[in-house]
Design a binder for these strands. Structure first.
Lengths: 153, 153
DNA sequence: TTGATATCATTTGCATACGAATGAATTGGC
DNA sequence: GCCAATTCATTCGTATGCAAATGATATCAA
């Protein structure tokens, strides 16, 4: 009986290890959904600027004139991606572009007056979007979540 | 003195409320970066399938033949997005498509033999990617994080 | 049965996102 | 000063992701 019993335990252990794969429980999948939800909430608060465009403007407002690639690094976009974002901000008159004096490779990006007033107007709305995204959590949970999320990012 | 002191406190409180906007601390921004990091880790483990393609295959393996839009709902992709994903899986011979008998609108998707063996082979690798993504956290932190993240997704 | 409504899928247009290749300009070592 | 390696930016190709418009089919109600 003891023999049978331990065999059973082994089988059960195997079954537990061998559990079916649940996509819904994988970090990557949930991360993707949480991100989707935030983008949707963001769009409801700020209709005329995408989160990446907002990030580029906000960072530019923070650090002042920088090169395109440097700005990309600051907002976690590779060179190809930041180029598209800046192109669209430029087309809308929110940023100005110029070549760096000493280093002619560098494309300097700066806020226009309209870009500055736009980002200053939108920051409170972005904060509302952040709040709404975090609304399912208590204040204590938010603090914990942000700390852990930052470790993963 | 008491008057001055409370005035000072009010000024400090205003300053705290009025703090500069820190993009790096916004959920949306960190969520986007964490997602980027996971996609990168995933690609290092599974080179020939993107996370959405993997998700579609894994879900199909789980639930069996379904309509394209239904599968999209299950993996959180809208109709336009899931179509592209399924088209590419079809082109690679991992899924088969057929029209539903009774309802000729519905496009039924099913795994091919190769699709089945592929997803069964890749699931352990995806689990490794999940582990690596979560590696910066302790087991206890992982449990907390997944619970909170699920609330946001 | 027919006409309005709803559902499933497709297509188009736009916006990230990234790898890889390319070109222009700069820097470092010698 | 010169060549090699590096850096900055651009371009191309591929893959999500979503809104909006369209077409085909089903369903429901009068």
């Amino acid at each position: 009986m003891t023999g049978e019993s331990s065999l059973l335990k082994i089988v059960e252990a195997d079954a537990a290890t061998d559990e079916a794969y649940h996509l819904q429980e994988q970090v990557g999948f949930i991360l993707r959904k949480a991100h989707q939800r935030h983008v949707s909430i963001f769009a409801a608060h700020i209709a005329d600027l995408t989160p990446p465009q907002f990030a580029a403007l906000a960072k530019l407002h923070d650090v002042g004139e920088t090169s395109q690639n440097q700005l990309g690094t600051l907002v976690a976009m590779d060179a190809a991606t930041i180029k598209g974002v800046i192109d669209r901000l430029k087309a809308r008159g929110l940023v100005d572009l110029s070549r760096h004096d000493a280093d002619k490779r560098r494309l300097m990006v700066s806020l226009t007056a309209e870009g500055r007033s736009t980002i200053e107007r939108l920051i409170p709305l972005a904060q509302q979007a952040t709040q709404e995204t975090l609304a399912p959590l208590t204040d204590k949970e938010i603090a914990i979540f942000l700390k852990l999320l930052a470790k993963l990012a």
